[in-house]
């Protein structure tokens, strides 16, 4: 099994498309950081207008932690695309390239192979998120230093400097589960497709539609909202509250994991009986 996973990872990391995600994050994140470094102060002022009426501010809120939080919040919709680029191709790419004919005629059970591919996809996702966390934090801190983190929701939260890092790391951890869910969705679509464009587009369509439905506050949409997995993807933000609502976070993580299992299960059921015609 390990050898199969290693083979799949070797295949993933032999391809240019795999590095698109790493390059995109490697460019996008510093860009956001530099922009914030230059202009972030104005944004914070703007966001805190009404507090300014009652309070004098002492100290600096523009720091690497804030940049990291903002990056997490803004890249929420973009990272799935970078992930799907690879995970949506895991099965469909073999179908499109005709390589299933050499791959599935090896003495390896389809279930094992599928699992190896799935695990490899999860590892790729983790690597991408780790990369994002690494440059978001390290570069952000290098440019802007550390400091207290302000998070503006219905409540304005200000977290002491020494109370931030674990929250950000936990948020990345939760984000990873959310992105694994995205990866699983695209993997499922990938098992049905014979070209990799289909699963990529389909995954993004599902995610964007679900997010739109969640955002529109109509009674019909409110009813379906709990059934949309995207609804649980944003729960990393719950780490930026006091006290942290661990029950809600665990519930969201549970919902996402349930979806991961469901998506993999469907992919497995489909792949096991699939006739390879390409």
């Amino acid at each position: 099994m390990f050898s199969l996973i290693r083979i799949e990872l070797y295949k993933i990391f032999s391809r240019i498309r795999t590095f698109i995600g790493f390059i995109a994050i490697g460019l996008l994140v510093p860009l956001i950081q530099v922009a914030l470094f230059i202009d972030g102060e104005t944004y914070i002022e703007f966001s805190l207008q009404n507090l300014k009426e009652a309070f004098d501010f002492q100290g600096n809120l523009l720091n690497g932690y804030l940049a990291c939080y903002i990056i997490l919040a803004t890249l929420y919709v973009h990272i799935p695309f970078l992930i799907t680029l690879v995970t949506g191709d895991l099965l469909a790419g073999e179908a499109a390239g005709g390589t299933f004919r050499v791959l599935l005629t090896r003495p390896v059970s389809r279930t094992k192979l599928l699992f190896a591919k799935f695990i490899s996809g999860l590892i790729y996702t983790a690597a991408l998120i780790f990369w994002m966390a690494l440059i978001s934090l390290l570069l952000g801190i290098a440019i802007m230093g550390t400091g207290d983190l302000i998070v503006i929701k219905n409540t304005v939260y200000i977290f002491a400097e020494d109370d931030v890092l674990w929250r950000l790391l936990a948020a990345f951890g939760f984000g990873l589960i959310a992105m694994w869910c995205v990866a699983s969705l695209s993997f499922m679509f990938s098992s049905f497709a014979d070209n990799s464009i289909g699963p990529i587009i389909l995954t993004m369509t599902v995610i964007i539609s679900f997010i739109v439905i969640s955002a529109i506050d109509l009674s019909l949409f409110r009813v379906v909202k709990p059934f949309l997995f995207t609804n649980y993807m944003g729960s990393w933000k719950l780490f930026f509250e006091t006290p942290v609502n661990y029950d809600k976070i665990l519930m969201s993580a549970g919902a996402l994991i349930a979806h991961i299992i469901l998506f993999f299960g469907i992919a497995w059921y489909n792949f096991k009986k699939k006739d390879i015609l390409t």
Binding site: K11, S14, R15, G97, G98, T99, R101, V102, T105
Partner: peptide, 16 residues
């Protein structure tokens, strides 16, 4: 399958 080697239709391998 351990003891079979095959070319099925076009010989597509990993181009990359």
């Amino acid at each position: 399958l351990r003891k079979i080697g095959a070319i099925v239709e076009k010989p597509d391998l990993y181009g990359f």
